[in-house]
Every structure is written in C-alpha cells, then in structure tokens.
C-alpha cells in the first residue's frame, strides 16, 4: 500500500516538473495534465461501476426488472461522468470553456433525440388501431 502511494507521488512530481520545463515550447496546445493517480482512480471506479450492473442482471439479484433497469441506467450515467472527468480530462476551463459548451449543446441534442423518439414512437404504437390477424393478412 505504501509502495503504491509512493509511486503515485513520484509520478505526480514528474508530471509537474515536465510541465514547468516544457511550459514554453508547447504552449497553447491544450495538453491535459495527466497523472497516474487520476487514471487509476478512473479505472477502479469504472471497474466497480461496471461490475455491479453485470452482477445485478446476471445474478437476478432484485426481483423487479423495472427497478434493476433504473439502477443499471443510473450506474451507466455515473460511469460516463467518471470517464469524462478521469479519462477525457474534461473540465470547465479546457480550451477556454469551449469544450464544455460544445458538450452541453451536444447533450441537449442527445436528450431531445432520445427522449423525443422514444416518447413519440411509444405513443404511436399504443394508439394504433387494434388489428386482428385477419386484417394483417389482408394488408396491401
């Protein structure tokens, strides 16, 4: 345990040194500040957030499928956030905030596309005139 924490301190120092030394020649590149600790945190969180949904579904842990679906979806959303923060290094300051602005715009479109399609098509299905097998056979 102590060895592990030592290495990560070491890595952190290296990364900081590198930034100071190379601060002037690759300026304005928008290079993220990467650390061993950051990647490992993201990885371990991802493993936990992946293992629990698979366990819930494969082991049939909860009696209600609906509750399981909600929990699994919640885990997916949290894991996506973990990926964005620890692997994609997204924060409000990168590229002067333009990355975040593009992401927010995209997320709005994603939510409209997904919820709109599902909502409209679900109600189309529900409100269709009931059809018998006989009607189906006589379809053009």
């Amino acid at each position: 345990m102590s060895a592990a924490s030592d290495t990560h301190h070491d890595d952190h120092d290296h990364a900081v040194d590198h930034r100071i030394v190379h601060g002037h020649d690759d300026h304005g590149e928008g290079m993220p500040h990467v650390t061993f600790k950051g990647y490992m945190t993201g990885f371990i969180l991802s493993v936990i957030l992946t293992a629990i949904p698979f366990w819930l579904v494969m082991g049939r842990v909860l009696p209600s499928a609906k509750v399981t679906i909600f929990i699994v979806l919640a885990f997916a959303v949290v894991q996506m956030l973990v990926h964005m923060v620890y692997f994609l290094h997204l924060d409000t300051r990168s590229e002067g905030g333009w990355n975040m602005l593009a992401l927010i715009f995209t997320l709005v479109l994603v939510v409209i596309t997904l919820s709109g399609s599902l909502w409209v098509m679900y109600h189309m299905n529900v409100n269709m005139m009931p059809m018998t097998a006989q009607d189906m056979r006589n379809m053009p």
Partner: peptide, 18 residues
C-alpha cells in the same frame, strides 16, 4: 469506451431484462 458503456447497458443488460 464511453459509448460502449451505453451499448452494454442499453442493448445487452436492458435487452436481457426486457
């Protein structure tokens, strides 16, 4: 990898539960 989270949740896990 992030998109795959959506795939295994939405397609595989929810598909089996459906």
């Amino acid at each position: 990898d992030l998109i795959w989270i959506g795939v295994f949740t939405f397609v595989y896990l929810m598909g089996v539960l459906r």
